[in-house]
Amino acid sequence: MKTDDLIDMLGTNVEPVGKTAGRTLTLTIAGGALIAGSVVLATMGARPDLLASTSALFLCLKIGLMLLVLVPASIFLGRLARPGGEKRVSLVLLALPFVAVAGLAIAALSITPKSHWSAAIVDDEWLECLISIPVIAIVPFAAIIWAVRRMAPTDLVRAGAVSGLVAGCLSALGYALHCTGDSIPFIAIWYGGTVVLCTLAGALLGPRLLRW
């Protein structure tokens, strides 16, 4: 085929293009938050002590921390979904909250007697947390990948990783409604760790799922 013939074809009855590309992705992320929250409340229920002051404090802490990652990650995903967008994201910025919480966790442990370490880290809920966050992340992840595929990412590893990161954060946000693991080291390891796991899974899957 001659390239001119292709151009003739593409240039006949050109459809106007609306500005919906970024909006679909934003709506998908918002929808993912609703899904993750509803799944947690429907299957596991809210934590029974939700209204007690210390548990409310820790719930706010978890939500605040997740938003600190989720908001910039969502903005970066919007950039990564467009050609060349990988030049305008900073993965270091996304890693900062994780480093900060890890630092706080080490500080908290350093002032905790060693005999109490295992209670702080391996709460009753650690296994549930380890399993729940990645499992709840699956549906939001699939939805986000669907939305990113409609755009045009040109760095599939990073686009996949940040898709996984956003899905992991959405899942952790939902799971926080249920989880009673209230200690900084617990949050650092079981929330931080599982969200990092989701990010790595996204990085591995990105090149397969997002190719266009």
Binding site: L6, G18, T20, R82, P83, G84, M151, A152, T154, W212
Partner: peptide, 26 residues
């Protein structure tokens, strides 16, 4: 060219054009 045509909704008019084109070409 086909990719540019099909994905032109991902071009942000506030940005310069050629980096977007170049990213697709690359």
């Amino acid at each position: 060219l086909m990719a540019i045509h099909m994905r032109r909704h991902t071009y942000d008019p506030a940005e310069p054009l050629m980096p977007w084109i170049y990213a697709i070409a690359r």
